[in-house]
């Protein structure tokens, strides 16, 4: 698959205009998860969203994935209003959610089967994609035969095979050990530089947010509001190894930490 050899062509434009979400709890009391979110993502940009637990980050992701409706406001992807699952969206969750009865190949083919887009060429497309994410030769393995990091790479491939204009990632590396996580962070940047999808990356990790993103959006505790929209101006490709000595990188990290400290999150 080579959706983007030309550079940045597949990234979708994403707009959240005044989006709020209020849930009803089991007792019937309303709980506001998101409060008037305004966010514009330019095509091909990498936006990271950090915030404390329960601040509505995942709610925002569910709204963008079309899994739940918003209470107020409007979400658009390439100009189209999102009210159900949007074909241009691919999602990677914290848990890899691989089907244990399918091989790696079968798992990555799943979205194409569901979207009825599976063709003769799909098989080769998957193999090519697996090669790109570092899983060459693993197509016929079952998820149980893979490590946590490899499983998450399969989950990423399953999202990417859909050639998503918008790639949503919900704490995708949170369940991995530190070393595997670092490797995946670095590989994700390289992958994204090659493909050019618009990415919304939700995380607790301030360092991975600053390292990966063009913009870091910081959210307040519930009801989630955007309290800082920080442009990260570090040249790409970035270097994970030396990032933690880079004064610019550390400055961004400190700036975000300060907000969390002020809010009593840290």
């Amino acid at each position: 698959m080579s959706p983007n050899k030309a550079g940045g062509a597949i990234g979708a434009a994403v707009t959240l205009a005044n989006v709020s979400k209020t849930y009803a709890t089991r007792e019937g009391l309303p709980v506001q998860a998101l409060d008037a979110i305004n966010l514009e993502m330019t095509p091909g940009s990498f936006v990271a969203c950090v915030g404390p637990s329960g601040c509505g980050k995942s709610t925002m992701l569910s709204l963008l994935a079309g899994l739940i409706p918003s209470s107020e406001g409007e979400i658009r992807i390439d100009g189209e209003v999102v009210c159900k699952a949007h074909p241009k969206v691919g999602v990677v969750f914290q848990s890899d959610l691989l089907l244990y009865w399918r091989t790696v190949l079968g798992n990555v083919l799943l979205p194409l089967e569901i979207k009825k887009q599976r063709t003769e060429a799909s098989h080769d497309q998957v193999l090519e994609l697996l090669k790109q994410v570092g899983l060459e030769g693993f197509a016929d393995k079952y998820p149980s035969e893979l490590s946590g990091g490899m499983r998450q790479r399969v989950a990423l491939s399953r999202a990417l095979i859909q050639e998503p204009g918008l790639l949503l990632m919900d704490e995708p590396f949170a369940a991995l050990d530190a070393l595997t996580r670092e490797k995946l962070i670095v590989d994700l940047e390289a992958m994204w530089l090659r493909l050019g999808n618009t990415v919304l990356f939700i995380t607790h990790g301030i360092d991975e947010a600053v390292f990966l993103a063009d913009r870091v959006v910081v959210m307040s505790p519930r009801p989630g509001k955007i309290v800082l929209d920080l442009k990260i101006e570090i040249s790409r490709p970035r270097k994970w190894g030396s990032a933690h000595e880079d004064p610019l990188f550390l400055g961004y990290v400190r700036q975000i930490r300060k907000i969390f400290e002020a809010q009593g999150v840290l």
Binding site: A85, P87, Q162
Partner: peptide, 27 residues
């Protein structure tokens, strides 16, 4: 069936029948 799996295939635009035959029944 893991609720997350249902969300995953919903995000791919799966119908109820697809959810049943692709994931719920095999699981």
């Amino acid at each position: 069936l893991d609720k997350g799996l249902v969300n995953l295939v919903r995000s791919m635009g799966a119908t109820e029948a697809q959810i049943f035959f692709k994931i719920r029944l095999p699981a």
